[in-house]
Design a protein around this nucleic acid. Structure first.
Lengths: 332, 332
DNA sequence: CAGGGTGGGTTACACGTGATACCCGCGGTG
DNA sequence: CACCGCGGGTATCACGTGTAACCCACCCTG
């Protein structure tokens, strides 16, 4: 029979009350902002006792009575997790911690319903959505009492979607030196790709604007042999090809495939990626890529978070899109 | 005055009991495995009512009474989040969901104490640790009642640490074609690097074994200009340099820096990375890199998870290290 | 027929917290 | 003096769940 180690009981608000010589209700009031009603002396006693015992309110008890947890969920696409997303997570984590919230990172699975259920299960106080949720899902979350951050109302006009803008920008970057046959390269991956469709549509629009035929859609795995095969399937022997890619990783695969097929870059094959990753600028040829400036987005998230802490209604949103610029490398 | 939308009350076990025509206690018993005492008819009634109401037990209520949440925390280093870690997270998530657990991804911040506190705050039923926690921190978690997975006891002999093995393997791969001046390239990043020190020590051991001087330690940022400067600082003009890198990203930066300095690869500069990322095999020159086979580790995690679901003590562990192999590319 | 076991279920408590409603004493006021 | 307002604090309820203890009718047995 193994000795059963008991799970290390933590101090409760009752312990604090006992130590401070007051009732538990007083402790609760002092610790939850309603302390202005009490004289300084009493507040000090309670605060001191809580400090000495290192009292941490039980999340379970609090969640039970308030109907809401102290959890903030960051919903992240599980396809691309680059350093920019990492920065965002770190940023949100520190901001949230300042407001006493626990941050939970959740990868959007391929099943949206399941993801939504998992989020609702936490009864989070807020959800940071990186453009994965649809309008109806955001509505469900909002109705469940969770704040959805940032408060960008998904535009009714799909042309104003950020991914559509990215797609058009890719087309423009690829056509800078004259018309070419366009193609869109998606990542071949079993996971959900929330951004790809919008980017493809944007490229289609970009092609239409130039009077070019509709771009084909390739699926590129991150492996040389199969990537080459996929690329060879669309490359007409004599006309130069221009490929807009889902992200920089895919762009690197397309470049490698092109080289394997004996294509000159950017003469026979031009490529543009998305995300402006550090790696894309370290390889040869340096990638031309789309940089998404989401510092303003981070600021807005921080602001929404702060508003949440003050239990304010969030400021009305201008719903501006992040700025998108082309970082020109050696692949266009 | 805005209309206050009430937060969509969810059904409780009381509602289920009412609908099934039994007491709440019966519902709880049937739904928590103690149902064998009840006749099939009653069980069916309860299960049917729960199904019809789509009853989901409140995590808060359950956590309050059991003193433990239904959360499983995956602790992940925030420096490198490649597709291998992504796979592990997905894998654990699906396994955990099968056992009714909610998965929470937590990035190990630069402050270990803070990270530990954040984990303890969840009162998780289990913590999956990717080699970040020290023995004492694992002890704290265990004592708080959380299962620490996988149950690898950190070896008392640092020579048996996986990162030490990786460092030695890097040294061996770099010295394959004769002795060279060795160096270790860490990632210049403000975040915590839990694996770097072990790998550096491993390389030192590898150098000693060959009678070579102690390798220097470089800090390489993922940016060409500064990476070149860092590399130039250690490159003696005439002796060939061999750099073992923290991961493939750093290796790519070192290769780029070497090219910028006019070095021939692998004649003047040989490089080896870690992780065998897809990107490293797509660029030219193809990276030589260390692959860590953690399929067995995943299986063990799954097994530990299953044992957890059955409330069993986990099987005794052979504490075997993951296998490590060299994927030879064009940089050595 | 009395007593004991047992299948089938319920009553009641505990978990830790937030907040509403209340109580008490005291000074001011009509 | 009766009353009111109020500063200062507390009793109590509600949240939803798991489970130990209990209860009751029934059958079997001596």
């Amino acid at each position: 029979m193994t000795a059963e180690t008991k799970p290390a009981k933590r101090p409760t608000s009752f312990d604090v009350a006992k130590r401070a010589g007051v009732s538990r209700a007083t402790v609760s009031h002092v610790l939850n902002g309603q302390g202005s009603r009490f004289p300084e002396e009493t507040r000090a006693k309670v605060l001191k006792a809580a400090e000495e015992l290192n009292y941490q309110p039980s999340p379970a008890g609090r969640a039970l009575v308030t109907g809401r947890s102290d959890i903030l969920v960051i919903l992240v696409p599980n396809t691309t997790f680059g350093s920019n997303l990492q920065d965002l997570v770190d940023n949100v984590t520190s901001h949230a911690a300042a407001h006493g919230l626990s941050v939970v990172v959740r990868f959007a699975g391929s099943n949206p319903g399941e993801t939504l259920a998992a989020i609702l299960h936490f009864r989070p106080v807020a959800v940071v959505d990186m453009g994965i949720l649809g309008a109806d899902e955001r509505e469900v979350l909002h109705h469940s009492g969770a704040a959805v951050i940032p408060r960008i109302h998904t535009p009714e006009d799909p042309t104003h979607d950020i991914n559509h803008v990215i797609g058009r920008t890719m087309a423009k970057a690829l056509l800078r030196n004259g018309p070419r046959q366009l193609a869109y390269a998606a990542l071949l991956d079993e996971r959900l790709d929330p951004f790809g469709p919008g980017r493809y549509e944007g490229m289609k629009a970009g092609a239409r604007a130039e009077g070019l035929p509709e771009p084909e859609r390739l699926e590129i795995p991150l492996e040389l042999g199969r990537a080459s095969a996929a690329l060879a399937a669309v490359k007409a022997k004599d006309s130069p090809l221009a490929v807009g890619c889902y992200n920089d990783d895919v762009a690197l695969a397309v470049v490698a495939a092109g080289r394997a097929l004996g294509l000159r870059i950017p003469d026979d094959l031009s490529v543009v990626g998305v995300d402006a990753t550090a790696i894309g600028q370290l390889v040869s040829p340096r990638l031309t890529t789309i940089r998404i400036h989401n510092a303003p987005l981070m600021e807005r998230i921080a602001a929404d978070l702060a508003a949440l802490g003050r239990a304010e209604a969030p400021a009305p949103q201008p719903a501006s899109l992040p700025e998108v610029t082309v970082l020109t490398g050696e692949t266009t």
